[in-house]
Design a binder for these strands. Structure first.
Lengths: 216, 216
DNA sequence: TAGATTGTTAATCGATTAACAATC
DNA sequence: TAGATTGTTAATCGATTAACAATC
């Protein structure tokens, strides 16, 4: 596969294309043009074509794109055409929410274990996945080929736990802790900073309110 | 307050500035230059100054920025200098995770109610907040001045519930459902699409693996 | 005052949009 | 073949970085 550097903006849009194509697929739509997709998704047709052509020519002149084919090609690009073993560290509500969300498994993200520091939780299961203690982490990661660790723990512990899992060979961290992790450059960190999301919402809300006031 | 259009990229960075400044404040740091902050945050000093100057001149030549002052000014910009009433719709793990996360309350996001369709949950409380039934939504929103609704429900129900809360006067939706909501233009939607985040992670993971293979 | 560092203008870089020739 | 729509190049737009005069 060719891999010139693709911009983050492009990557961010791919999952959304994938979702819309999945919906079209369910509706039994066979082909779609960049123009039709454009009006559904509120992005320009030009952008759709540009984005896709970063990875190859998936369409056909005069016809458009075959929905099923494009859907599966994007899955390949995103690496969700094969399984990834994953663990969740932090068995609180957020960790359990992720464990319970079956759609992730459908996309190939297989939750192999859940970890926590609370000994009372040891041995309990969430959707059939056992909760284990943090000190078992390194061995478990190695023995189960764990690629991804979701960190749903408070920020105070996050850096420490990140170091442990990286050391044990985890290749990507899905970070829900409200802190920036420092990891070797061959380890991926994908942040989900909920408080930052809420502040963006708040900014837009305040701006809206100020605009209203002015107009009166 | 002046409000020429500020780009989304700038807004996205503000909460992170705010977080770093908060940490500096806790450490008792009084002043910081754009250069020092730059090296801590791994962004250019130029960008920091440009970003801040969208909202006003918060620094002082030859001195830098007063941490406490800048922190509080960013709070104002983000609208977290005053309270926002919020409800959570969907009392599953994700909804409860948000309800339990006390830091949101500290930032002024006051959770007034939690709603669900499951009658078994009625009357239970999460951190002292009562779980109510969905049909009470419109009245509750009006009576309690609810500005924000967090939607932690499956996508099948999301559009319908969004219509209800918008109708009842909610000004912003924090959308965790895996779907795009269509709302009037004076209503804010802030999306948290976890599956898209996980796919971005997956993309980067796959790219990494392919690069490794090539190098061998 | 001299040194430091901002605020801001100018230069560069990258991403998006437009246009159109290629081609199914 | 004629019409449609892609793939791709060129033009535009916006965001980031660099530079420096203003000023504390």
């Amino acid at each position: 596969m060719e891999h010139k550097e693709i911009s983050k903006a492009v990557i961010s849009r791919l999952p959304r294309y994938y979702r819309y194509l999945g919906e079209l697929l369910e509706l039994g739509v066979e082909r779609i043009s960049s123009n039709e997709l454009s009006s559904k998704m509120k992005v320009t047709a030009s952008q759709i074509r540009q984005d896709l052509n970063n990875f190859g020519g998936f369409g056909q002149q005069g016809y458009g794109y075959n929905v099923k084919y494009l859907h599966s090609e994007i899955a390949k690009i995103l690496g969700i055409d094969h399984n990834h073993n994953m663990i969740i560290i932090g068995a609180g509500n957020l960790g359990q929410a992720i464990a319970n969300y079956s759609a992730f498994e459908k996309r190939g993200f297989i939750i192999k274990g859940i970890f926590d520091v609370n000994p009372r939780l040891e041995g309990l299961t969430v959707r059939g996945v056992e909760i284990r203690m943090i000190d078992e982490l390194p061995e478990f990661i190695k023995e189960n080929d764990i690629e991804i660790a979701a960190l749903t723990i408070p920020k105070a512990k996050a850096k420490e736990v990140a170091a442990i899992v990286v050391d044990a060979g985890v290749k990507a961290i899905w970070n829900f802790a409200h802190t920036d992790l420092v990891v070797p450059k061959d380890v991926i960190v994908e942040n989900v900073h909920l408080s930052e999301s809420l502040m963006r919402l708040s900014y837009n809300l305040s701006r809206l309110e100020n605009t209203d006031k002015k107009e009166k």
